[in-house]
């Protein structure tokens, strides 16, 4: 191994150290029996895990988050399928620009989207925070599903659909028997993208939550602002675990390689 290679590896390793050292520390804190930070934990304890589970705010937030993420994931991917199919298959000037239109929420910081929705929905008299959360999360996740699915559809050869049609399949049959099965991996990737995007959001959630429905992020945020509490570390560990699982799922269904640059 030459010096250059060692240097290169060391550089990449330093990058990963920078990223993962703080996360590792968080894991240690979650296992620390003490309620203050000082050096390494003297022993391992699941005390904070216990208090995390018993914490209603966290549990409620997590439940709401899972509900909101699931519903907005379903809406975003199903609406996204139709939109992306239409955009890639009609392929004319105006429709191509629609692609940009569907991606436009990505250009606006989610904090702004959240504020805008807060004012707008209040003005409309929409006060059900659970519905509002779903609406907000659908707005921010739809672009991701459109982005993944247009990429997937554009790799599909339209003559396959034409072949099916020539064999007597109506447009609906072509879609259900040919298109859907072929894009299944991409569809999985889209659902995972949108789910994880919804789970990771805090900016939109902060503005659209109230005491009836608040997401996990909002629960975490309120704790983070208040006191030092190692059960936040437990919440962090849980979120990290979810991230790892989602990435594993993408790799298994779609391949990470193809996802680079799509996010």
């Amino acid at each position: 191994m030459d010096g250059g290679l060692i240097l290169k590896r060391a550089y990449v390793a330093a990058f990963f150290l920078f990223i993962f050292f703080p996360l590792g520390v968080t894991v240690l804190i979650s296992l620390d029996p003490r309620d203050y930070v000082f050096g390494l934990p003297p022993s391992i304890s699941f005390r904070w895990y216990q208090s995390f589970i018993e914490n209603d705010t966290f549990v409620n937030g997590l439940t709401t988050s899972l509900i909101v993420a699931s519903i907005s994931m379903i809406i975003s991917t199903s609406v996204g399928i139709f939109a992306s199919y239409s955009i890639t298959r009609s392929g004319k000037g105006f429709m191509k620009n629609l692609g940009t239109y569907f991606l436009s929420p990505l250009l606006v910081p989610t904090l702004v989207t959240g504020i805008a929705l807060l004012m707008y929905l209040k003005q409309l008299g929409m006060l059900n925070s659970l519905i509002n959360l779903v609406v907000g999360h659908t707005v921010i996740t739809l672009p991701y599903s459109v982005r993944v699915l247009t990429a997937v559809f554009s790799t599909l050869d339209p003559s396959i659909e034409e072949a099916a049609m020539s064999l007597g399949a109506s447009p609906l049959k072509v879609f259900s028997k040919i298109v859907l099965p072929m894009i299944r991996p991409g569809l999985m990737a889209a659902t995972i993208f949108t789910f994880s995007e919804s789970l990771n959001d805090y900016a939109v959630s902060i503005f659209l939550s109230d005491s009836n429905s608040y997401t996990f992020s909002v629960a975490l945020f309120s704790y983070l602002k208040a006191v030092f509490d190692p059960s936040i570390a437990v919440a962090s560990v849980l979120l990290m675990a979810i991230t790892v699982v989602l990435i594993y799922a993408i790799e298994k269904t779609f391949g990470l390689d193809k996802v680079v640059g799509m996010w």
């Binding site: 050869d157 003559s159 396959i160 034409e162 072949a163 099916a164 049609m165 020539s166 064999l167 007597g168 399949a169 109506s170 447009p171 049959k173 072509v174 040919i178 072929m182």
Partner: peptide, 15 residues
């Protein structure tokens, strides 16, 4: 799909 026509495509277009 309502005509009764067989088509062989250049790239085969197999499912």
């Amino acid at each position: 799909y309502k005509r009764n026509i067989g088509i062989v495509f250049q790239n085969y277009a197999l499912f």
